[in-house]
């Protein structure tokens, strides 16, 4: 008798879903020395099927990794990208961290919230949009920033953001400022985040204007970093003092507390004080 994948699982997934999830989960676990490292991508994978971290998804991860459902839940609830309720087709995230907020992010969020009739982490009735306030998304030089399924929509205004939301609700393609040529669905995005690329890396630009601001000035004024010759003799670091075995980066074994103390995490720049 061939093994029925469904028989081995307490999840409510049908056999086909179990088979494909299992194949993907196996590929995920193979990326790591320890399969447990695959849990975060596996939760993204579950969201690519269910649109959120479902009870079935939690059971699937637990069964696959041989851990308890409670252990999986503890991880899933820690991270904001794992959704406890079915997500809209698009997450529209407005950055309302200080810099974007001040530059107009607060106004954009308020306008969108009014326009869509939903608040933070709520989904429109048609299931198209889940609105979120998001934290700094490392695009402050493009403030105010809106992310749609974690693609960049830079330099937004209330008008551009509401027009964007309207298009999404109509099912029209929207084009990120820096990203793929169109925005994929929440489920498709989740599959990529699970580590299964969609072949669209070559779409879109390499950089927007702010990213190139300094470089442009350097080009105009003919500024370059010193050439290697300019800096005098290239270093031939041969005399290396006492070192570990060949192939080792160690100069000596970490034996004293002060050896290990150097790794002490500091707050940014603390050691400069």
């Amino acid at each position: 008798m061939t093994a029925d994948p469904q028989a081995a699982t307490k999840t409510g997934y049908d056999a086909e879903t179990v088979a494909s999830l299992t194949a993907d989960a196996t590929a995920i676990m193979a990326r790591y020395p320890d399969p447990r490292s695959g849990l975060l991508p596996m939760l993204h994978l579950v969201q690519s099927v269910d649109g959120y971290v479902s009870r079935d998804g939690i059971l699937f991860c637990a069964e696959t990794l041989g851990i308890t459902a409670a252990e999986v839940s503890a991880v899933a609830t820690f991270y904001t990208q794992y959704k406890r309720h079915p997500n809209g087709t698009y997450t529209v995230g407005v950055c309302t961290n200080t810099l974007c907020a001040v530059m107009g992010g607060d106004a954009i969020f308020d306008e969108l919230s009014d326009h869509l009739g939903v608040g933070h982490d709520e989904t429109t009735d048609d299931g198209a949009i889940t609105l979120e306030r998001i934290e700094c998304n490392a695009a402050c030089d493009y403030a105010p920033v809106v992310m749609v399924n974690w693609e960049f929509f830079d330099n937004q205004t209330p008008e551009t953001a509401t027009a964007l939301a309207d298009k999404l609700r109509l099912g029209d393609d929207v084009v990120p400022t820096r990203g793929a040529a169109s925005v994929c669905s929440f489920k498709q995005m989740s599959r990529i985040l699970a580590g299964f690329p969609d072949g669209r890396a070559d779409e879109g630009v390499g950089a927007g204007e702010p990213t190139l601001a300094g470089l442009k000035i350097a080009r105009e004024r003919g500024w370059t970093a010193p050439s290697s010759g300019q800096a005098g003799e290239p270093v031939e670091p041969v005399e290396t003092g006492p070192v570990g075995k060949p192939g080792s980066s160690a100069e000596r074994p970490a034996a004293t507390p002060s050896d290990t103390a150097v790794g002490k995490d500091k707050k940014p720049g603390e050691d400069a004080k």
Binding site: G244, S249, A250, A254, V262, G263, K267, P268, G269, E270
Partner: peptide, 18 residues
Amino acid sequence: RGGAGFPTGMKWGFLPPP
């Protein structure tokens, strides 16, 4: 360059021998 400014080569040098 991640914030704390700890010397990078020194950090590598503190791995114990293989």
